[in-house]
Design a protein around this nucleic acid. Structure first.
Length: 945
RNA sequence: GCGGCUGUGGUGUAAUUGGUAGCCACGCCAGACUUAGGAUCUGGUGCUUCACGGCGUAAGGGUUCGAGUCCCUUCAGCCGCACCA
């Protein structure tokens, strides 16, 4: 009987669907396990072989955990809102709703073929109203919350109002956009509108005027993680910095907790490192400087407080609001010209061109430590968005200040013993401080740092600043608030309207979801007019279908609605929670359900989400945790990044000016042009010549110079893309070899975390393995499984496998498991073993990897129930014990030969046996044994004197 | 510039975590069965040497009886952050 994978896979797939084998219910009698894949956004290209890599890995683990008796939640859904889905729709000129629907259908079809154990009854789509109701709901909760730094958690905004009424801002320690200061009386005197404006400064979801990344080509603003090297991540369009009023999420309030939480979760070091870099914690000091001959004062941030005595100038960011205030009349024209120039530069130009530019403001600042007046400059090497947008420049010990000082001829004052600053600055934080004035030498300051190490000097200066109220110790984070609005169509509408004061108000929670309206034109605009402006009919509450004309109408008053939509990461930030309770209409997730499933035990996905989704999700979850909605602070306990699958392109070589193609190893004799050829008509780098002729009309009459009767193609690793003809679809592999072969092969390719090119060479090896496995069960035309007692050799083979596979799955080392399967099957084949007692555990072990064939064999062995509900076999060490162990006898560490010694022999006995054996040898005469080292069960090393 | 990771046959990789480097595959070579094979089966395959042997885990050094594995230096590649004060 042949291994007919097509028939088997079809049969069991249909059976699983009919019997709902993968449907999961909450079951408190069993321990839970939650395995999650990063859900895909349904792009138009469909799945390629890179997508399933992670899904297969998680599927294996899910099935394994189920066999171990866990109640496993393993869901799948679609990240359907957002830029990628919308860009695809725009490119194909279709409505995103239609393309999204079609793409999802295609994804589903492809996923079905691979035999995943997803519980499809829990599928979520971020663009479903029933789903985004909870995205909108979460946004409203954030709007109604502020972040208390003392409690280190989000609290209802009403508590903040109470605090204002009682004490104003007195004693307040909360996250805010701008430090405000007012008394309770002043608060009470404010108008309702003013109060709302003040509260906006504290809300976790707030509308604020900030520097944003504006991408004209995409017609929208973008979050920082959506901008890479100054261009948009999606499409690579230019991005410019612009001040705009936008919705933002106060992610920065959670910076420290996001950092601390990393210590509690099992992620790779590299991913944690990426997030740490992104959060960018930096401890330093804020110091106030007065402007000379003025009441003005401004604050700078520095991590090098020890260099206060080396300050020779100050620099402001061009965007700083201080710039107009410190610019003197004489310098005005020059400053304006400079501001104009810098304003015009895009982010990319700013990154590319790092030549030193700047302009003198005309004013001076007083160094609070020395009383010295130093010039205030303006330069775009100082960023408005970090620290205070102003710095004290210490050219001797900062390379950027150094370059600036050299360029403009400013003083460089070294402060570290023995450092040479004639050619470059001395940036290292090591050495002994010198050149600071003696204590009491100036009327301003009695601090002397001479003789201290830099670290001691920093601490001493911090202390001094604090004691003399010159500033404060401050921790800065690079992490910025997330810009949360997009001037695009395909996203969640904000559940927001604007009152007659123009202040945003939340649509009543019972009216959610606010549905995304139909619009005549959904294209984005270069000027940033949101497409929702075209909407004429809005609706909310799917039940009541209240319709409003572009506005909320209340007692005949018309209130305009927010026209921006939410960004892609909104819908993906809490989807793992929704899977727990996907049909709940009353809560994002029921508290009891959340108590049971808690959080994701194993999360598998790509590194590309390190600074986007994986930050936002953690933030979102921590916020919900603060509110008591979820019971775990971190959403993803363990995370594995599957490597990227690159394309492996094939080339044919056309002899210039002809239609003749020369095989790879002969091409050096000709002048040739390499041409990409579709990898799907190449096998093991051998071109299917006939298929090539059919591939394109111009090759119909192609001729070939062959080697050994074959046409060998060249190859290269490139991005997997249509234009390189190197895209491999999983469907094609499934069609040719079956889903089980695809699953095994993707895992056999190498460690999951490693990036590698997709290379179909070698897939025959795993396919052959399945055929060999099949032939353990079937003879020429019938089942040949027998009931006999297994021999010790057979038991050893299978128990070795059980041990190895169990260990490997726990360690996500699937590639080595598959090797172990191959070894076992080869052993059983040569032992001619077809005993049920051996083959049955083999089938169970295989079930996570190749579920279809395992299911078929399981039923062939006479079982009625699905193999998914079998029990994971346990191994017995007894069967693995060797009768004797081969010890390596080595002299002075050099291995000489093997000596068989009985199992269980003690260290001393082994030593003795080895010596007896050796000392009788002739060549040992006259040598003295200095030491004998026995590694139990392994090695005897004899050290000769 | 700062931080992290990686480096093993022609190829993908493995190595019981410091114990005979190269498991399992691909490819290649030889053989068997075949009208035929992109089928199946058997054997071989790190380099070098006729051989005995010698050399081999990016390069160099160190620790150790023993190093692919630990430590130091260098080189190469990949990734993250980056005028972040």
């Amino acid at each position: 009987m042949e291994y007919n994978f097509r028939e088997i896979e079809k049969k069991w797939h249909d059976d699983w669907v009919a019997k709902q084998v993968y449907k999961v219910e909450m079951d408190p009698s069993k321990p839970k396990y939650y395995v999650l894949d990063m859900f895909p956004y349904p792009s138009g290209a469909g799945l390629h072989v890179g997508h399933p890599l992670g899904y297969i890995a998680s599927d294996i683990y899910s099935r394994y955990k189920r066999l171990q008796g866990f109640n496993v939640l393993h869901p799948m859904g679609y990240d359907a809102y957002g830029l990628p889905a919308e860009q695809y729709a725009i490119q194909t000129g279709q409505h995103p709703e239609i393309t999204t629907k079609n793409n999802i259908a295609r994804y589903r079809e492809q996923l079905e073929k691979i035999g995943f154990c997803f519980d499809w009854s829990r599928e979520v789509r971020t663009c479903d109203p029933g789903y985004y109701k909870w995205t909108q709901w979460a946004f409203q909760q954030m709007f109604n919350s502020y972040y208390c730094n003392d409690l280190q958690k989000a609290r209802p905004i009403s508590e903040l109002v109470e605090a204002f009424e009682a004490n104003g801002t007195q004693g307040l320690n909360v996250a805010c956009s701008e430090e405000l200061s007012f008394t309770a009386e002043e608060w009470k005197a404010k108008s309702e509108k003013e109060k709302q404006q003040v509260l906006m400064n504290y809300r976790i979801a707030y509308r604020g005027e900030t520097m944003v990344n504006w991408c004209a080509a995409l017609g929208t603003v973008l979050a920082n993680d959506e901008v890479v090297n100054g261009v948009s991540e999606r499409g690579g369009y230019p991005v410019e910095q612009k001040v705009m009023r936008q919705w933002c999420l106060r992610v920065s309030a959670y910076a420290q907790r996001l950092l601390d939480g990393l210590e509690t979760i099992d992620w790779t070091d590299s991913l944690k490192e990426t997030q740490k870099n992104w959060i960018g914690r930096s401890e330093g000091t804020e110091v106030r400087f007065k402007v000379k001959d003025s009441d003005l004062e401004f604050t700078i941030f520095t991590t090098r407080a020890d260099t206060m005595f080396g300050v020779t100038f100050m620099v402001l960011a061009p965007e700083s609001e201080l710039v107009p205030q410190v610019t003197t009349a004489a310098q005005k024209a020059e400053v304006e010209a400079y501001l104009d120039r810098t304003r015009k530069r895009t982010e990319r130009e700013r990154i590319a061109d790092r030549s030193v530019t700047g302009v003198f403001s005309g004013s001076y600042a007083i160094n609070p430590f020395t009383g010295e007046a130093v010039p205030i400059w303006i330069s775009d090497y100082v960023l408005a968005g970090y620290g205070t947008g102003a710095i004290m420049a210490v050219p001797a010990h900062d390379s950027r200040d150094y370059a600036f000082a050299k360029h403009f001829g400013l003083e460089i004052r070294p402060l570290v013993e023995g450092c040479d600053v004639s050619e470059e600055s001395f940036d290292a934080k090591e050495g002994i401080v010198c050149n600071s004035p003696k204590a009491g030498a100036t009327p301003y300051c009695d601090l002397s740092l001479n003789g201290l190490t830099i670290k001691e000097a920093i601490a001493a200066t911090k202390q001094y600043v604090k004691a003399h109220h010159l500033g404060r110790v401050k921790v800065n984070y690079r992490l910025r608030d997330a810009i949360f609005s997009r001037q695009r169509y395909w996203g969640e509408p904000f559940p927001v309207y604007y009152d007659k004061e123009g202040m945003p108000q939340m649509i009543p929670a019972e009216c959610l979801p606010l549905l995304l309206p139909e619009v005549a034109k959904f294209l984005p605009t270069e000027t940033g007019e949101p497409p929702l402006g075209h909407a004429t009919k809005w609706a909310w509450d799917t039940v009541n279908k209240q319709v409003v004309e572009n506005s909320l109408i209340d007692n005949e008053t018309i209130f305009p609605l927010e026209l921006c939509t939410m960004p892609g990461f909104a819908g993906s930030s809490a989807y793992y929670l929704r899977y727990m309770d996907p049909h709940n209409e009353h809560a994002l997730v029921d508290a009891q359900v959340d108590q049971y499933w808690r959080n994701v035990d194993l999360y598998i996905g790509g590194t590309e989400h390190a600074t986007g989704h994986l930050i936002y999700s953690r933030f979102w979850n921590k916020f919900l945790f603060d509110l008591g909605i979820v019971c775990e602070e971190e959403p993803f306990k363990k995370l594995i990044n599957q490597g990227m699958i690159q394309g492996r392109s094939n080339f044919v070589y056309r002899i210039n000016g002809t239609n003749t193609f020369v095989s790879y190893n002969l091409k050096k004799d000709y002048e040739v042009t390499p041409i990409h050829v579709d990898v799907n008509i190449v096998s093991n780098d051998v071109l299917d010549v006939e298929a090539f002729k059919q591939w394109r009309p111009e090759y119909n009459d192609a001729e070939f110079v062959l080697e050994d009767g074959k046409y060998i193609c060249g190859w290269a690793v490139e991005k997997m893309s249509k234009s390189m003809f190197n895209v491999v679809n999983p469907d094609m592999i499934v069609e040719k070899y079956g889903a089980d072969t695809l699953r095994l092969y993707e895992m056999f390719l190498g460690p999951i975390e490693q990036s590698k090119p997709w290379d179909t060479n070698g897939i025959d090896g795993v396919h052959r393995f399945l055929k060999k496995l099949w032939s353990l069960f079937f003879g020429n035309d019938s089942l040949k499984v027998t009931d006999g007692e297994p021999t010790p050799a057979e038991l050893k083979a299978i128990h070795k496998l059980i041990k190895k596979v169990t260990y490997d799955i726990e360690h996500f080392s699937y590639n080595t498991s598959i090797s172990a399967f191959m070894i076992c099957v080869n052993e059983l084949t040569s032992l001619k073993c077809s005993k049920k007692a051996v083959l049955e555990p083999l089938v169970v072990l295989l079930a996570p990897f190749a579920p279809h064939i395992a299911e078929e064999l399981w039923h062939q062995l006479g079982h009625e129930t699905t193999v998914c509900d079998a029990e994971w076999p346990a191994y017995n060490e007894e069967y693995l014990v060797e009768q004797s162990v081969s010890y390596v006898i080595s002299f002075n560490g050099k291995a000489r030969y093997n000596l068989q010694l009985p199992v269980g022999i003690s260290k001393e006995e082994a030593e003795k046996a080895a010596l007896e054996n050796e000392l009788s040898q002739k060549w040992m005469e006259g040598k003295t044994v200095r030491k004998v080292i026995v590694v139990p069960g392994k090695i005897v090393n004899i050290v000769l004197g």
